[in-house]
Design a protein around this nucleic acid. Structure first.
Length: 275
DNA sequence: CAGATGCCCTGGGCGC
DNA sequence: TGCGCCCAGGGCATCT
């Protein structure tokens, strides 16, 4: 969603100037170093690894890495638009527009990292800072067979494992609950206890859930934090079957959707349909 | 190692 | 209306 917008809108643009005003927005390097590196750089086609956005700079040996975390937004605006509150970074582009990083909770960050040259164990292009991230669940390498091998013998519960970015990259609280509902699996099943048939259901459910969410441009909750480059909300929230629906009828059996706290995060599920 | 907890922050919603 | 709580698409450090 955001990556697609970036690829469509900013590929090939030059950064005429960059400004960072947020004190916490650039924390892996001096903000001045990032600003200096971005000035004059030409942007390549946007990539994504898990929840990290990657914007290649110039020849691609370095990239601007962006993580929006909980409340970050990237907005593409005319420079004349009023700069909203919590705007922590602004890139002025050669097409006359501005790419603005807005983040009320300041959990998000930007940094510039060298792309790894590739080689054994490292996919080319992936910055070393992101080496810990697991496979993308929509990639070919994340097959049902690979998932079965990865789950075998694990005692961890399904939901925390799905949300572990080292295990598989890109699944957060909403989509783990939705995928587990679609797979008819309880969030606290020990990962290694799944039958082959159940692994197949989980694999299909994760991929179908993420594909549909991307197709509908993501989930915007009532706080309106997630929006696309032009400030438009996503449409997947209306398709949530359990997330944020405590007490409402389960779309499969009609029983009440349950909510509990797991590791400090809300978990939504149906006791009947997710045994 | 798995798991729980706390923390980084601001803002919106709700109950009183 | 105002205040205090609880909650929020994430990730990391630190404990047990």
């Amino acid at each position: 969603m955001v990556r697609r917008g970036l690829e469509r809108e900013v590929t090939g643009r030059e950064i005429l100037s960059a400004a960072v005003t947020g004190a916490r927005t650039v924390r892996r390097q001096p903000a001045e170093a990032l600003v200096a590196r971005l000035r004059g750089a030409r942007l390549g086609a946007a990539g994504r690894i898990g929840k990290f956005l990657l914007l290649p700079l110039d020849d691609g040996t370095e990239m601007l890495v962006i993580h929006l975390r909980m409340s970050g937004q990237l907005l593409l605006t005319p420079p004349s638009w009023p700069v909203g509150p919590h705007t922590h970074a602004v890139l002025s582009l050669s097409d006359g527009r501005e790419l603005r990083f807005v983040d009320p909770r300041t959990f998000g960050e930007l940094f510039v990292a060298p792309a790894s040259p590739g080689g054994p164990g490292a996919s080319p292009g992936r910055p070393a800072a992101l080496a810990h991230l697991g496979p993308d669940p929509l990639s070919r390498q994340w097959s049902a067979a690979a998932l079965r091998r990865a789950l075998a013998g694990r005692t961890a519960r399904l939901k925390p494992l799905l949300m572990d970015q080292r295990f598989v990259a890109g699944i957060g609280n909403i989509y783990s609950d939705e995928a587990l509902f679609a797979a008819r699996l309880r969030f606290d099943r020990p990962a290694g206890s799944l039958s082959g048939e159940e692994v197949g259901r989980l694999h299909r459910a994760v991929r179908a859930t993420l594909r549909e969410a991307v197709r509908l441009r993501g989930s915007s909750l009532s706080d309106g934090q997630y929006v696309d480059l032009f400030g438009e909300p996503g449409g997947y929230q209306s398709r949530h079957r359990v997330y944020g629906r405590e007490g409402q009828p389960c779309p499969r059996c009609g029983g009440p959707v349950r909510r509990l706290s797991l590791g400090g995060r809300s978990t939504f599920f149906c006791e009947t349909c997710q045994p």
